[in-house]
Design a protein around this nucleic acid. Structure first.
Lengths: 342, 342
DNA sequence: TTGTAGGCGTTATCAT
DNA sequence: ATGATAACGCCTACAA
């Protein structure tokens, strides 16, 4: 910019005023500055600008796994929304790892991001401390944080799972396998509650043998389904609390020589682009990904611009059961224990 | 940091020296500084640091669509690799839009990223100009740039498509529909060449009616397949040059009351997590996404650290045909023109 | 309308 | 081993 000023024969202040048009500059100088900028090949330095202004126009985003289609879509929506708003987003994948997350958030804060959107993992207090000392707004998505009250947009997980299990029960299923994550994640506890509530509402006894907890990865779903489907009294339906795990579950079912939906009905949490393309067409619980992303961005932008109430806002959205062909009514016979029919 | 210095009763220079241990500081001061840091709640300011050092430890990444599973996985690999290397990554989706891309790259350059990885879109000269004036290293992935010689890691697209079409021809297919992108993208031109070469190698006449160009989105694949499958002499096989378009194609096939692979064999470019989970299990051309991501990161890091030869390096990786169940041999009858059998 | 100068938080040079 | 001080490139009073 100094070069530009010299080249144009004016002062840096004038150049700055022109660039940010923060003050009127005469047509003559305007022209000289414009050509000077071109000649010098001037490029603004956002870093110096940020240092001075205390604003980076950058936000940080951390998600557990970007390859999980739910997060893929949310990330897509969020990056695009921020792009439109003139913000850049720094993306990190925590990989469900607590220390990764803490370190990444620290990094983001060091870089003076103007705000943070985090789909947090685990339940440690380090996160709480970070949040408390952070001077920038944070909005949580997908997973709440027990101790701390922050802006958040989440799903009514209990209701969503309730509806799915209810649907299965209506189809006559009484032994419903449930593949889920560890209970240190609030979202999972809510889904668990939905499962149990639906069972209770239908008068089906809760059988701890039917719930398997994994770490959200495909392999966890695989081994969970393996165990479930080799139980003496195996389930006639399986619900998976996330998408990667259902991939594993489907593979296990296939490897066991079983078929879906003939031998076992399957529902999973989170819709995905291929769900209605292949056979079976997977029945899923669809989260309103666009709304989640858009609302989270809007909330954060409101905070950044000081347009938000001081109290944290929590938005709870509803999921939607996308009924397709991966679930069928259980035949009268197979609703009986397998051991009897063998 | 000034606060820390005051609190510890030392100078900022000493604090800085301690933090970056760029000089020996006595045990006594060390202790005082440490407690001061804690008491003050000091957090380093990476922006000021970047301004001074001329390095942001941040890189920019732009891809056409993050929801395309190929890019999802590449982005995942790249963000993780950079994370391990201590870099943050700013992610942008160009949405196949030239002006988006140019603007985003400009933004990234303003922010003084240390390097850029771009899966570029289109073929405009604005990009060339940006590249020429950029003072930071750039590595291209997936799509080359005609005019300019840059570090790049790409696929041998021609060979990959050749192998796929060859496979179809071996199965007896003579009318092979080809759904692809516009020819302004080098990658697509290479894939086209592979298609034509395979046809030629098998003595199959090229029929322009069988190639449909879209804009990479699902809807383009849908209408392309719709047109293809309602041709008087419709194809017995379809190859889709990307993944979102094959989703559309499969939906069109379904909506036409046709089945895959019984009525039409299908192959698509880019593997995806669900490919071998549902029916039909999709035969795909798998790109080595991990290698692409890792190598691109390594190349960029090499440049950043000055460990690279001055000549641009180009890495060309091989694709792999993942043969599953979406393609079958064409029955003798249906290899004849449909009009005759009707 | 335009110029001067101070400071944003760091790091680096040179003294001490 | 530690301190004073000058940049890094920009913005903004304030002055002219």
């Amino acid at each position: 910019m100094l070069d530009v000023a010299r080249e144009a024969g004016v002062s840096v202040a004038t150049v700055s005023a022109f660039i940010n048009n923060t003050a009127r500059v005469s047509p003559g100088t305007t022209g000289r500055i414009e050509t000077a900028i071109r000649r010098v090949g001037y490029q603004r330095n956002a870093v110096a600008r940020s240092l001075k202004l205390g604003k980076t126009h950058t936000i940080g985003l951390t998600v557990p796994h970007i390859t999980n289609p739910f997060f893929t879509e949310v990330v897509a929506v969020i990056t695009q929304a921020f792009d439109r708003a003139g913000y850049a987003v720094m993306l990190f994948c925590t990989d469900e790892n607590l220390s990764n997350q803490d370190e990444q958030i620290r990094l983001l804060l060091d870089r003076m991001v103007d705000g943070l959107i985090v789909a947090r993992v685990g339940d440690d207090e380090a996160f709480g401390n970070i949040v408390r000392t952070a001077k920038v707004p944070i909005v949580l998505i997908d997973r709440l944080c027990d101790g701390i009250d922050l802006d958040a947009v989440v799903l009514d997980n209990k209701a969503a799972v309730f509806e799915a299990i209810e649907y299965l029960a209506r189809l006559g299923h009484k032994r419903i396998g449930y593949i889920t994550g560890e209970t240190d994640i609030a979202t999972m506890r809510e889904r668990d509650a939905g499962y149990r509530a639906a069972l209770a509402a239908r008068g089906i006894a809760f059988d701890p043998l039917l719930v398997r907890r994994g770490d959200f990865h495909e392999k966890d779903g695989y081994s969970a389904a393996m165990q479930l489907m080799t139980l003496p009294d195996r389930p006639t339906a399986i619900f998976s609390a996330n998408n990667p795990m259902v991939v594993g579950a489907m593979k296990a079912i296939r490897d066991l020589g079983l078929r879906c939906p003939e031998d076992v009905s399957v529902i999973c949490f989170d819709d995905f682009p291929f769900a209605d393309v292949f056979q079976p067409q997977m029945t899923t619980v669809r989260q309103p990904v666009e709304a989640i992303g858009e609302q989270a961005v809007a909330m954060l932008l409101d905070r950044i611009n000081g347009n938000a109430p001081t109290d944290p806002r929590r938005l709870t959205l509803r999921g939607r059961l996308m009924i397709r062909s991966s679930c069928v009514a259980v035949p009268a016979a197979s609703s009986e224990p397998q051991s009897q029919s063998a």
